[in-house]
Design a protein around this nucleic acid. Sequence first.
DNA 1: ATATAAATATATCATCCCGATATATAACGA
DNA 2: TCGTTATATATCGGGATGATATATTTATAT
Lengths: 181, 181
Amino acid sequence: MDVRTVCLGVLTLGDATGYEIRKMFEEGPFQYFTDAGFGSIYPALKKLHDEAYVTLREQAQDNRPDKKVYTITPAGRAAFTAALGKAPGLDKFRSDFLLAIFFEHFLPPGMIEETIEERARWYREKLEHMQSCDRAGWGAGPVFVNQFGQAIYGAAVKFLEENRDTLIESAADRYETEATK
Amino acid sequence: MDVRTVCLGVLTLGDATGYEIRKMFEEGPFQYFTDAGFGSIYPALKKLHDEAYVTLREQAQDNRPDKKVYTITPAGRAAFTAALGKAPGLDKFRSDFLLAIFFEHFLPPGMIEETIEERARWYREKLEHMQSCDRAGWGAGPVFVNQFGQAIYGAAVKFLEENRDTLIESAADRYETEATK
DNA sequence: ATATAAATATATCATCCCGATATATAACGA
DNA sequence: TCGTTATATATCGGGATGATATATTTATAT
């Protein structure tokens, strides 16, 4: 799904500026399964405007850059519906952390524990954030997505907590063996 | 982690051609947390060769393009170790499926069930593949990574199976309400 | 009181990545 | 026999990433 389509989706929830869309991806309910930076959002909005899928009104502000508030058009809604109608692409889980753990024997001794600890903390924080999200007024879709996220991130936290010691010990054993060799 | 670094990692496991590296990403133990197509692997190998991180020997074959077998150099190993020494970037889970479910009210009636069913099947297949992987001779790192994957994909399957009906019913209710309105 | 960071708001740019496409042949099954 | 899969390389356009630039206010910290 390209950034243009996701922007259209966000705009079906209400008018927004590029900056606000970015915040949705960073802090809002979208952050766990999609992402886009300014470098993709601004060009996307420009193109959506060219295609007449959105309109914009510039709002002057004191001592700040003008706000560009975007509104989705009926054509934009139709395009978004059409895009959703196609079978979604495959889910992707990408983890440099797991790559590092896979090649764990290339890591300096203390770093395995530190890395796992840090990642477990990160997953725990994200999980707590999802749990604390106010579900009042949310529709069935957003609730399902939020709970799916909790299931996944919860499983990650649980696994890291239950299996970290085994890996750390096995790495420690290897270092000992190498030292006495 | 860029494709060059991941290629170096694969090459620490043994010499390989670009085609074989691709297969590792597609079928091997890497497929659940990293990915790269030919369009990234071949340029990456070319650059690694320029940087003297790999050497290559061309193996002529009958009626086939020459095989280019790449071997990692000591400098390549050092570069890979240095790259792993840095704190890994954040894990990313990206899902067009969840985006579609989030905007579930834009989907045609039957498609919600079909979409969830298809995705549950996909997660189940991936999970079974991970479970069937031969762990004999694997080190602690690869085992940890494989089991982490199983925990995550298992949680996804479980969630989809347990919650699909609730979402489908709530969508059906909405269609009824809209019809009688 | 003053420095420093963070938030608001836009935008660009190089670099890299993804997916599609091209080329060529062997092997295998329908 | 005809289509598909596997082997093996490579390129190319469009798009995404991450860093950087600009400018001001507000909040936090020293």
